[in-house]
Structures are given as C-alpha cells and as structure tokens.
Amino acid sequence: MTFTQLLRKENDDIFQAIFNHPFVDGIGKGNVPDKAIAHYIKADFEYLNAFMRIYGTAISKSAKREDIQFFNEQIRFVLNSEIHPHHNFCDHIGVGYEELQGYALPPTADHYMKHMMYHAHMGGLGETISALLPCPWTYWEIGQELMTKYEPSADHPFYQWISFYADESTGEITEEMRNRLDNIAEEASVEEQKHIKEAFRKSCQLELSFWEMAYTCEKWPGKEKVNS
C-alpha cells in the first residue's frame, strides 16, 4: 500500500460524509438552493485565488524543474479551466459570475485558506502538497460518484459541473500530486509523515465543512460591516 493509498483509507469516513452531504448529493439530484450556490461561488472564487498562491509557494519549495512546471500548470488550470463549473452554477441561478466575486471569505473558508498557508509556509513540500491534495482528490471522486449514482444526461442542470470533475483529465491532477507525495513520503522521517498526515486529514475535514458552510450560508457573527 502506498502512502497516499493509506491516506485515502484513513480518511474514508470524511470522503463518505462528503459524498452524502446534501449540497453534494443535491448536485447529483439537480436540486440545490440558489442561495447556497451563490454562497459557494462567492467563497470558492476567493478560496481558489488563495489556492493558486499556495501553488506558488509549492514552486518556491521545488528543487526539480518538472515540479515547477507541474505546479505552474495547475495555476493555469485554475485560472482557465476551473471557471467552467463555476459558470455552470452561475447560469443555473441566473447570476453573472462577476457579481459573485470580491466577497470576504466566510469563517470556514477563511480557516481552510489559513490552514493551507500555515502548512505551506511552516512545512516542506510534502506538507504543502498534503494540504492542497484533498481539494482536487475529493472533487474528482465526487464527480465519479455522482456520475455513477445518477448517470446524468446532457440536459441535467449540473451536467457540466459533474462531467468536468468526473473527467479523467481532472483525475490525472490528483494522480500527479499523489505520485509526488508518495515519493516525498518515502524519504520522510516518521515525524514528517505525521505532519503530512495531519495536514491531509484537516484539509479533508475542511472540504466537508466547506460544503456545509455553503449549504447553510455561513456568515461571521455580529453585524456585517460594509467597507467604505
């Protein structure tokens, strides 16, 4: 069993909870509240901006050109490709994509972003990858799960979203990151492996919490302040 196979086994409880979450399952059923979708897009747009910056940190920690090239390609993927599932959601609720940009991160998304940044800045490349990996990994498995469970046709309201994440090209990103993490883990100390596992587990948990955050339209407590 490889290191990342072990990670997947140890975190299956969170993966299954994600698959069964009402927002995720609602995508498969074609029935998610418009407010939840809008809240998700607002948070995910800014979260992905942070995600790209952490890819940049991974580049700074990379000793090999092939690693630098890989992370650079992932930045381009987020910029140019991952907007398509966002557009699917926006088209469904009839709101322009630009209207949902520039919002402050809700508590869970803010915590998730800072969790990844902590491991990226305080740990090595292995910790950085392990904090990033649950995002593409869970989304690829969500796409596979929904495609198998609901067999959506082209007229399904979220067909573009599901098919995008279920596509093998999306799965290849996960495989590439897993291979890099497996190679790093082989040379890592027991203590380093422990930190890698902790970073991965927390990111899985925060992926689940992100869906809950969107579904409940989570906000910061107290009165909302408007920037002047």
Rank of each mutant, 00 (worst) to 15 (best):
E172F: 01
E99W: 03
N31Y: 06
V95A: 02
E186P: 00
N20W: 04
I59Y: 10
M117Q: 14
T108Y: 02
Q205H: 07
L48N: 13
E187F: 06
H111S: 09
N49G: 14
I184D: 00
G124D: 15
I18T: 06
Y215I: 02
M147G: 09
A43P: 00
F89A: 08
W140N: 11
E141Q: 11
G28C: 10
M122D: 13
Q205N: 11
A185I: 03
G26Y: 05
W211P: 01
V32D: 07
Q205L: 08
H86C: 08
A50Y: 07
R180W: 02
C217L: 00
P136M: 05
A185R: 01
L206T: 11
T57V: 15
E175Q: 13
K194A: 11
Y215L: 11
H92Y: 15
P136E: 02
I184E: 00
G26E: 07
P136W: 00
M1Y: 07
K114Q: 14
T128I: 10
T108H: 03
H115G: 01
P152H: 11
A109S: 15
R53K: 14
S189C: 06
Y103K: 13
S203Q: 09
R201Q: 13
I75K: 00
C135K: 01
L208P: 00
M147T: 14
A63Y: 05
S203F: 06
K35Y: 00
K194R: 13
K114F: 04
L146Q: 10
Y97E: 10
F51N: 04
N80V: 02
F71G: 02
I142E: 00
S81K: 15
H111K: 15
A185C: 06
D91L: 14
G171E: 05
L100Y: 03
K35W: 00
H92G: 02
D44Y: 04
P152Y: 10
T174Q: 07
H195K: 12
P157V: 11
H84N: 09
K219E: 13
F19T: 03
I14C: 04
L125S: 02
G26A: 07
H87L: 15
M113H: 07
M1P: 12
F51I: 04
K194M: 08
Q193C: 12
Y165I: 06
K9Y: 04
E187R: 15
A199C: 08
M122A: 14
W220S: 06
D34V: 03
F70A: 14
R65L: 14
P134Q: 08
P107I: 11
Y40V: 02
G222Q: 08
L208E: 04
H87Y: 10
H156N: 11
M1D: 07
K149E: 09
S169C: 04
E127N: 14
I93C: 05
G171K: 02
S60Y: 10
G94Q: 09
I68R: 10
I93T: 03
Y103L: 02
G28T: 13
M122T: 15
E192M: 08
T174V: 15
A58I: 09
S228D: 05
T4D: 03
A188F: 05
E224N: 08
E191Q: 12
P152K: 13
T108D: 00
D25M: 12
G222Y: 08
L133M: 08
Y97R: 15
E10T: 09
Y112G: 04
T2W: 05
D25H: 10
L133V: 06
E191M: 06
E172I: 09
R8H: 09
H92N: 14
E212I: 09
F158D: 01
F210V: 13
A166G: 15
